[in-house]
């Protein structure tokens, strides 16, 4: 049996959960085995229903108050119980911060391996041969768990096809009353919950680098006298333009580390080896030179567009399209051109 863990936040499943479910379905079919899903939380019946619609043969639903907030200890306890009870051969998770942690802890409970952030899978008999990036994608490794069970893997967002909705439906939802211990942590609340697309799920990303602050003709208001603050102010104007372009495209906003370190934009937006690794259909890099650590985070984007003043910037080595020019002119022009195009369509 293949079990897929459905990760969700604020009442919505993360899209990568469905991708994982689809991977699980493929593996189960090939193995002549069953595909099941696990949904944990409080008030999450809708998500269980969705898992069924997406093709899970059986959905284990633990809808309990103690599971209201993601807390790794109690969530691990729940998944461990279900996986043990069912005797799953393969357990899949989407690669999110939460699910990766859960997968790691489940592996400890069950004394087995965990293969995070998988980008491809194939079967050799009953053994999953997984491919995953290492060294920030500079290399790939195949990884297998020959002897221990279950095989635990997390699948990278946007590396696999999501399933068609409505392809399942035959399945059942089984409600579980689990005996769970009250964990030693308490969730006090959330802040800065951005409701937009997360970088890892975005189909399009527009990113800004240090170049976003480089517009000497912009005069900061006189009350900003500190040079660093003036630079940040300029960069905010740059990111404003990037934000508008992103809005027209329905894209998420990314950044280079230089932009983050200089205080232009929060760390959560950083793309790269020490930020997020992303793989959108379209990545537009504005005022980003293309340092190796940045490229490591976005090199698998399907189409890369670079906008940079410097024709020799290394980013052009990876870009499909390049515009050599000032982002303060090109980015708003691009926003305008896209608006025109969309109006006509």
């Amino acid at each position: 049996m293949v079990i897929v863990y459905i990760d969700h936040f604020d009442g919505r499943a993360v899209p990568a959960s469905w991708e994982a479910l689809n991977v699980g379905r493929g593996l189960a079919e090939e193995l002549g085995s069953e595909i099941k899903a696990v949904v944990l939380g409080s008030d999450v019946e809708g998500i269980a229903q969705e898992a069924k619609d997406y093709g899970a043969g059986e959905v284990f639903l633990a809808d309990l108050k103690v599971l209201e907030h993601f807390r790794p200890e109690v969530y691990t306890e729940a998944v461990t119980q279900i996986v043990q009870e069912q005797g799953a051969e393969i357990v899949l998770f989407p690669t999110t911060g939460r699910a990766r942690e859960l997968a790691g802890m489940l592996a400890i409970d069950l004394d087995t391996g965990v293969t995070p952030d998988v980008v491809a899978v194939e079967l050799e008999g009953s053994v999953v041969v997984a491919t995953r990036p290492i060294y920030a994608g500079k290399l790939l490794t195949k990884e297998v768990n020959q002897a221990r069970r279950p095989q635990i893997l997390t699948t990278r967002s946007r590396s696999f096809q999501p399933p068609e909705k409505g392809t399942g439906g035959e399945g059942v939802i089984t409600r579980l009353e689990l005996e769970l211990s009250e964990p030693a942590t308490e969730v006090q609340g959330y802040k800065e919950s951005n409701r937009g697309t997360s970088l890892s799920d975005a189909a399009i990303i527009v990113s800004g680098g240090r170049g976003t602050s480089n517009n000497p003709s912009l005069k900061p208001p006189p009350e900003i006298t500190d040079e660093k603050e003036q630079e940040i102010w300029r960069a905010h104007q740059g990111f404003e333009l990037i934000g508008e372009l992103a809005k027209v495209l329905g894209a998420a906003v990314g950044a280079s580390r230089a932009a983050v370190d200089a205080g232009f934009i929060p760390y959560a937006n950083q793309v790269g080896q020490t930020g997020k690794v992303v793989s959108p259909d379209l990545y537009i890099a504005c005022g980003i030179s293309g340092a190796i650590q940045h490229l490591a985070g976005m090199r698998t984007s399907k189409t890369i567009v670079a906008i940079n003043k410097d024709p020799d910037a290394p980013i052009y080595k990876l870009a499909r399209f390049g515009v050599v020019g000032d982002l303060f002119e090109i980015v708003p022009a691009l926003t305008e051109a896209l608006r025109e195009k969309l109006d006509k369509a």
Partner: peptide, 16 residues
């Protein structure tokens, strides 16, 4: 008490 950086924002958690 810590702030955990999740994809969707920050989760504030306290523990022992």
């Amino acid at each position: 008490t810590v702030e955990r950086l999740l994809e969707e924002g920050r989760q504030i958690v306290s523990g022992r």
